[in-house]
Simulated scan of single mutants.
Amino acid sequence: MAGNIDAAHPPPALLKVVNPTLRFALRTPLGAVLKQFMVVSFTGRKTGRRYSVPVSAHHLDGELYAILEAGWKHNFGDGAPADVLHNGRTTHMHGQLINDPEAVADIVHRVATSYGAKKAQQMMGLKFRDNNVPSKDEFVAAARQGLAAIRLTPAT
């Protein structure tokens, strides 16, 4: 991705097994225990298809975020409704893509620092080359190469 930061996604074959299992588990009473994950359901802006994507749930300043580089982030470029299954319940929310490199870096650096390097790498799907939380400038570089955040707020 950039400098000290690389994407660290599981192999696609593993995701084909893990994602459906996680989507199912989060809809059961187990979902209240798996608080570090959420399922974001939304309608594709080009396809009109409904998608349900399990991702890590990140909390910062009382707000909920998805941190990602995946292409589906663009569905939230102009803001979009989403149903978010988190902590055992589904909430109608509004997702807004944040892709300004400075803003993304601030969010991601603060979240990573709150987790510590080891947990941040696991929760964010990133690999830090020296196993330390990268600097804000390093996260700015990663954001310029596609790292982004989606802020999820209750729909009004």
Rank of each mutant, 00 (worst) to 15 (best):
K73I: 06
Q121G: 13
A57M: 00
G3F: 12
F139C: 03
F139Q: 07
V17F: 14
E102V: 15
H86Y: 04
A103K: 15
A142V: 04
V18F: 14
A80L: 01
V104F: 14
V111A: 03
F76V: 01
A120V: 12
G125H: 06
N87C: 04
A32K: 12
A2T: 11
V140F: 11
E69A: 12
P81I: 01
R45T: 12
A142P: 11
V18A: 15
D61A: 14
A80M: 02
L26S: 05
F76G: 00
N132Q: 15
R50Q: 10
N87I: 04
M93R: 08
L60A: 08
N87L: 02
A142E: 13
V55N: 02
F42M: 01
R144D: 15
M123V: 08
A66K: 00
H74N: 09
P10F: 07
P134N: 08
K118D: 13
A2L: 08
L147V: 03
A13V: 09
A143F: 09
G125T: 01
A142W: 08
A155Q: 12
T90R: 05
A103E: 15
L60C: 06
E69R: 09
F76T: 00
H109S: 15
L85W: 08
P10W: 11
V104A: 02
V111P: 11
M38R: 01
T47M: 02
R27D: 13
I67H: 02
F42C: 02
H109C: 12
R49V: 01
T90W: 11
N87G: 10
V104K: 00
A82Y: 05
L15F: 13
R110Y: 12
E63N: 10
R151V: 15
P101D: 14
F128N: 05
S135L: 04
V53K: 02
S41M: 02
P10R: 09
A32G: 08
A13I: 12
A143C: 09
P12L: 10
S135Q: 02
D106G: 14
T43N: 02
Q121Y: 07
R129I: 13
D78Y: 14
K46R: 14
T21F: 15
H94I: 05
V133I: 10
A82S: 02
P154V: 08
T156L: 10
G3W: 06
K119V: 14
S41H: 09
D137V: 08
G116D: 06
